[in-house]
Amino acid sequence: MTIKMDICSDLGEGYGRYELANDEALMEIISSANIACGFHAGDPRTIQKSVQSAIKTGTGIGAHPGFPDRVGFGRRDMILSYEEVYTDVLYQIGAVFAFAKANGAKLQHVMAHGQLHNMAQFNEVYAEAITDAVYDFDPNTILICLPGKLLALAEKKGLKPATVIFADRRYNDDKSLVSRREKNAVITDENEVIEKVLDLVIRKKATSINGKDLDIVGDTLLLHGDTQGSLSLAKKIKEALLDAGVEISPLGKWL
């Protein structure tokens, strides 16, 4: 049986004159785009450009809502109420949706960014707020998430969850991501990344940072575009998957 996989990346994370990654080149490689909504990064012009690039390349359009934390790029803990998380997420989904609709396209998915996503794995208030925001926007919208409370609540509420796996990040024993504050959280060796990706996608296996064997099932593989050599690595990862017989296409076409 053919293995189907989506490849996504966090895009539109520049601001004004500043660009964080080569979004246009990455858009040619990936099949779904997580577009920053203006809170942790991004702005209206950047969202418009990202949406138009996604349409041009046939890439699935997704909203990537994060904490209101430009200085920390959404990677710092924030203590917020249910109402704050709910309204912040719904507001950000609406931003990307508006540009998608204005350009004759649809919003395929939502994926929470950075620490908002990480905290929602364990914080039920955050998980409730995010899933309620997606459900109230449109329950047919795919919610990309890691295993944990967010995924469990998405399934319970009848949403369409998709599990994300990470190409260059190490896992803890509980399948959560090793914090970027920890040493060796990000894998930098290209060969190791490609070997890990093939294990994740084909064998559905990973090894935790402590050497524990993990069973990992993923629907979308996230590639980071803001690290050194990321574009070259992204091309090699896609080539390795295609050579292994993996069919790559946007989540909305097969999930």
Rank of each mutant, 00 (worst) to 15 (best):
E124F: 04
P147Y: 01
A63H: 08
S50M: 09
F67C: 11
G211H: 06
L177F: 02
M111F: 00
G158H: 11
F122V: 07
L153Q: 12
A244Y: 13
L11N: 01
R180V: 07
A63D: 02
P68Q: 04
L231I: 08
M119I: 15
R180G: 15
E24M: 08
G94F: 07
G42P: 08
D77C: 07
D77V: 13
E83Y: 04
E247W: 07
N34H: 13
V186P: 02
Y135R: 14
A167P: 04
R203E: 15
L107F: 07
C8G: 11
Q121F: 00
N22A: 12
F73Q: 06
L151T: 00
H109L: 09
V51F: 01
E28K: 15
I61Q: 03
I187Q: 13
E128K: 15
K212N: 01
P250D: 01
A133I: 10
C37Y: 00
V110P: 06
D132M: 02
V193N: 05
H40V: 08
E128P: 05
T2K: 15
A102K: 10
G211R: 05
N34G: 11
Q52W: 00
L198Y: 06
K236S: 11
M78K: 15
N34M: 12
I202L: 14
F122G: 02
N123K: 12
G42H: 06
H109S: 05
D69K: 02
I165A: 08
Q92L: 01
I7Y: 03
T220F: 00
L223H: 06
G42K: 08
V110D: 12
M27C: 12
N118P: 10
L143I: 12
G158K: 12
L80N: 08
L200A: 10
I79P: 00
G94V: 05
G16A: 09
A63P: 00
D88A: 15
L26N: 14
T57V: 04
G16T: 09
K175G: 04
H40T: 11
D10I: 06
K196P: 06
W254I: 03
D23V: 13
S232Q: 09
Q108L: 11
A33L: 10
I237C: 08
G229T: 01
Y126Q: 04
F137Y: 05
D6N: 04
L200R: 09
V71L: 00
V51W: 01
E13P: 03
M119W: 15
D69I: 03
K236D: 12
R70I: 00
P44Y: 12
R170I: 05
K175V: 09
I187A: 11
G245Y: 06
Y135F: 15
D174K: 03
T131L: 10
D132Y: 02
N184P: 03
S230P: 09
G42N: 09
F67W: 15
K238C: 05
N123D: 15
I144T: 03
G225H: 09
R17H: 13
R76C: 12
L251A: 01
K196W: 03
G225N: 15
D189Q: 01
D43V: 06
D138C: 14
L242M: 09
E124I: 10
N118R: 14
T227P: 03
E83S: 13
Y15F: 13
G42S: 09
